[in-house]
Computed example of a mutant assay.
Amino acid sequence: MLRNLILAAALSVGVAACATAMTTPVKTGETALGTVLVDGKGMTLYTFDKDTMPGKSVCNGPCAQNWPPLPVSAGAEASGDWSVVSRDDGSKQWAYKGKPLYTWVKDQKPGDTTGNGFLNNAWHVAKP
């Protein structure tokens, strides 16, 4: 039992070290809507149709409380389809193919997609 705990702790430290070196904290997950982009916790990521200017998010203030931006960790670097958006509050957010990425506060567990189609179909699951 103690050996398993030590191995689990070592593995989590290794995973954390890899996460810092990664360029993005995103992977794919399976949902009822098919394969989507998910954050490190497996929560579905979304894009917002009103984010029309590359490198700019219009979801700020109360919007960002309901749709938390996918944060960029210190030292992470953008490449390929991934870019970094500077938000109005000075924080940094990941974008995929120019579209800023968000989670949705009403999704309760990995695989939930309750934000898809929200606000007159302006919010969509992010697809790879």
Rank of each mutant, 00 (worst) to 15 (best):
V36R: 04
W94Q: 07
P110L: 03
K106S: 09
M53Y: 08
E77D: 13
A64L: 11
M43V: 00
T20R: 15
P25F: 04
A126C: 00
D51S: 10
T103H: 08
D49P: 08
G111L: 01
P62L: 12
N4V: 14
S57D: 07
D112A: 00
V85N: 02
G34W: 03
S91T: 13
T44P: 05
K109C: 05
D107G: 02
P68M: 09
L11D: 12
A21Q: 12
D39K: 04
N66K: 15
L33Q: 00
A16Q: 14
D51M: 12
G98K: 00
G55I: 06
L2Q: 11
G42W: 00
P68H: 11
A21H: 08
W104H: 10
P110V: 05
N121Q: 11
T44G: 06
F48N: 06
G115H: 06
G29Y: 10
A126I: 01
N60R: 08
T24P: 10
T24S: 12
K56T: 03
L37E: 07
A9Q: 10
G90M: 01
K50N: 11
L7N: 07
A17F: 01
A76I: 10
K106M: 03
D89F: 07
S91V: 11
R87T: 04
A76K: 08
P100T: 09
G117I: 07
A122H: 13
N120W: 09
S91F: 04
P54M: 10
V85Q: 03
T103D: 07
G115P: 02
K56W: 06
G75Y: 06
Y96G: 06
V125E: 00
R3T: 14
K127I: 01
T47C: 03
T113L: 00
T23F: 15
P54H: 06
G90S: 05
L45I: 07
L7D: 14
S57Y: 02
S86M: 11
G14E: 07
K127S: 10
W123M: 07
W82K: 02
N120V: 05
F48M: 02
L45R: 10
K50T: 12
S91H: 05
G98T: 01
A76W: 03
I6G: 08
G40M: 10
P25L: 00
Y102D: 04
K127H: 12
S83D: 13
G34M: 10
M43F: 06
H124D: 02
K99E: 03
T31I: 02
K109A: 08
G34K: 07
P68Y: 06
V13N: 03
T44H: 05
A32K: 03
A78P: 08
R3A: 14
Y46D: 12
N4S: 13
T24L: 15
G98F: 02
V13F: 09
S57L: 01
F48L: 02
